[in-house]
Every structure is written in structure tokens, then in C-alpha cells.
Nucleic acid binder design. Structure first.
Lengths: 201, 201
DNA sequence: TCAAAACCTTATCTTTTGTTAACGTTTTAA
DNA sequence: TTAAAACGTTAACAAAAGATAAGGTTTTGA
């Protein structure tokens, strides 16, 4: 199978973090693997160290914790986004949540050990260091906003914001997952939807 | 004034991110400034780009938003921690919250422009890149836990966890600030305290 | 195709939180 | 030193959310 198209796509998408020279890209792409996940297949599970970072070519992933036997969804990732149990990937400590494909999903993977090989390869070490930094900084910006939303906004306001800014999500994700993401129960989200519908009608 | 002791202290504390060689440290420390903040003095305000990252030698800082004229506290930083409006510092976009000293506080500052100078100085660029990466990765791990706490835990559970793991905070921070940090109102925290007190009595 | 599972809504009841205000104590600053 | 401000608690009521269960629809998978 020829994956050239997908690798070029990846290189292009990664420009929002860092631009690889042709020489660097030749090295970098050697360390990538393609992997397909069926719906409901797991990318990461609790108790195991997360050894990979993935780039989503197509599909979607769901992050969730299990607490007293109940799944609580904390996050989603979609096409052209990265996916990883980042803390575990960074610290090599056992992961604490599940990451699962919620559609048929194809990832391009980078193994932690390959990351480390590149970090020790002078031809690409600096670029990898930049790459890792930009990714981390990008996610910090996202996290800053997300934490602020929990501090400043009510669940209803979070829902309305999400509907405005990420309405697409609702077309692909069951509402009871979205509810968890907003920090509330599915029943509560259903009520909020009913409430806010009347305002617009 | 001789700040050698404080600079050595900083170098030691930064080892949790990265170790500077003697040569690198000589360069790095040239770019640092000391600054004192009186109680209630601002490190960052909304609408202005945050141009510095600070290391707290002593004192404490409070992060808060103002919403409809009301202050909502989102975070604190203490001795030997970093302080910055990180997203603004990284993106050069106007900051959206206040960062204020809540005690007499002394910081060692790095200006963004000095960071950039070092990023372009071959003698230290790689180390700076590593430094920036490790800081970002460190905060990502913190944020991952903090977001999870909002998704998984009730306010009461967050309070009990905080009391267990960061009890020291309560000795220095007014409770109505802590309440915001937990995502609730001061009145609600007061009730939670009363409730949970009875369990232990 | 068809039974099972998943999903969303609704209802009921309980618990928790928000809001506002009052009160007493402590801290602050002139 | 002293008046003002800040702080924590409590009360009363309203609003919102959690828990549980039931019902109907849609999706899934054998």
C-alpha cells in the first residue's frame, strides 16, 4: 500500500507546530507506523503505559474514565488532531483512562522509543525538541480555556458555547458522552437542551 | 545587592525541568531580572500581552477573572513555582485575566524577548528549546489532572482531595478564593466544610 | 430481518448549589 | 487607635443537578 499521500498530508498538518525540511522529513517518516482501529477498539487502557502518540487520518477517538463501573467521557479527538494519553506518554507512568475509537479510525503512530531515538539523532534532535515543545504549548492553550470554562461558566453556558463553536461534534457524538464532557449527567444535558430550545423558538 | 544565592537557588529548582551547564547558566542568568511586588500589585492584567514568565522566590500569586464585576479566582502559585499568563505569553495575544500578588512577593523574571534572543543564540538555543518543552509538558500533566477532577469528581470530593494534598494552601489563602478554585461559591464551600467536618468528628 | 442494545427524553424525588442578606469576627489601613 | 473593609458562617428560598426508573425511538449486529 502506498501511503505517500497520507504522509504528505501529515507533514502539511504538522506545519502548525513545526516545518520539517526535506532531509528531516525523510528521517522522521521512517519512524511512523500506520494502524487501523475498528469501532470500539482501544488505543490506550488504564494500568498500561501509553507508548504512542497518534495522528488521526480519519475517524474519532473518545477518552473516558471508569468510576464505580460507570464510563465518564472526558474528551474527544477528530481528524487531523493528535491523540495520546499524554501524561502517561510523557512520564512513562501507567495511564489512568481509556482511549477508544468511536468510529473506524486510522492513525499514524509515533512510538515513544522512536521519539527518543530521534531526540538522540543530531540530524533531527533540535527539530524534534521544537516539535515536542510546540505540541505541548498548543495543548496548554487548550487546557487553559477548558479549565477556565469550568471555573467561570455554568454547565448551561458551557453547552451553549460548545454548540456555537463545535456544533459539528453533536452530529457525530452521542449526547450522553457530550454531557460528561461538559461535566454533567446525560439527564441534566437533556433538560438544558429543552430549556435553551425555548429561548430560541 | 548580591543575588547570587537566589540565582543558585533558581538554577537548582529548574533542574526539575533541565540542567544548565556552567557556560549555559552564565548566558541564561544575564537575561534574568529581579522584581518585587507589593501585596495586591498586578503581574498581568486583561487586554495586555503578558511579556514575562516569573519564578517565585517568595510570596504567592493569584489568578482571577472578572465577570460582571465579580472576581473569580482560578489558580494560585507559590514559592518555587512559575507564574505566567502562559497562553498570552506564548501566543502574544492579549491576556484575559488578572494575576496579582496576594502577599509581598519577589520574582525572578524572564522577558519574552530575552527568551527569543536565547532561542536564536546557538550557544544556548537547544537548551532553551528543551527548557520550554519541559515546562509546557509539566503543566500539561497538571492540567490533565485538573480537568479530570472537574469531570470525575463532585465539588465535595475536590475539596477533600485538596485538603489532603494541598492543605497548606488553606493556611495562606482566603476560603472564598479557594471556593472559586474548586468551581463553587464561597457559601457552598462553607456548607461543604460543615458537612465534612461532622464525618471526621 | 429481528431481537437486543443503545440512546434520548420525561417524570419524580432528593440532594446540592446558587443567591441574597444578615451577623459577628478579624484584618487592614489611615 | 479606630473606622472601614474583608472574611466566614448561617439562614431562607429558588434554581439546578443527581439518581432512578420508565417509555419510545433508533441503531446495531447476529
Amino acid at each position: 500500500m502506498d501511503n505517500t499521500i497520507h504522509l504528505n498530508h501529515l507533514r502539511c498538518e504538522l506545519k502548525k507546530f513545526v516545518s520539517f525540511s526535506d532531509a528531516e522529513w525523510e528521517i522522521f517518516k521512517q519512524y511512523l507506523e500506520f494502524r487501523h482501529y475498528d469501532k470500539k477498539e482501544f488505543f490506550a487502557v488504564p494500568g498500561k503505559v501509553c507508548d504512542h502518540m497518534g495522528f488521526i487520518l480519519h475517524g474519532a477517538m473518545r477518552y473516558f474514565h471508569v468510576r464505580e463501573g460507570v464510563e465518564i467521557t472526558g474528551y474527544f479527538s477528530f481528524e487531523n488532531e493528535l491523540v495520546s494519553a499524554y501524561k502517561s506518554f510523557l512520564t512513562r507512568l501507567p495511564n489512568t483512562n481509556y482511549i477508544q475509537a468511536i468510529e473506524k479510525t486510522t492513525l499514524i503512530l509515533i512510538a515513544k522509543k522512536n521519539f527518543e531515538l530521534m531526540e538522540n539523532n543530531p540530524a533531527i534532535a533540535f527539530k524534534i525538541e521544537q516539535f515536542g515543545r510546540r505540541i505541548a504549548e498548543y495543548y496548554i492553550c487548550c487546557y487553559e480555556d477548558r479549565v477556565a470554562s469550568f471555573i467561570i461558566q455554568s454547565p448551561e453556558e458551557r453547552y451553549l458555547d460548545m454548540q456555537k463553536n463545535a456544533g459539528e461534534i453533536f452530529l457525530r457524538i452521542p449526547q450522553h458522552y457530550v454531557a460528561n464532557f461538559l461535566g454533567i449527567t446525560p439527564v441534566s444535558l437533556s433538560r438544558i437542551r429543552k430549556r435553551t430550545l425555548k429561548v430560541h423558538a
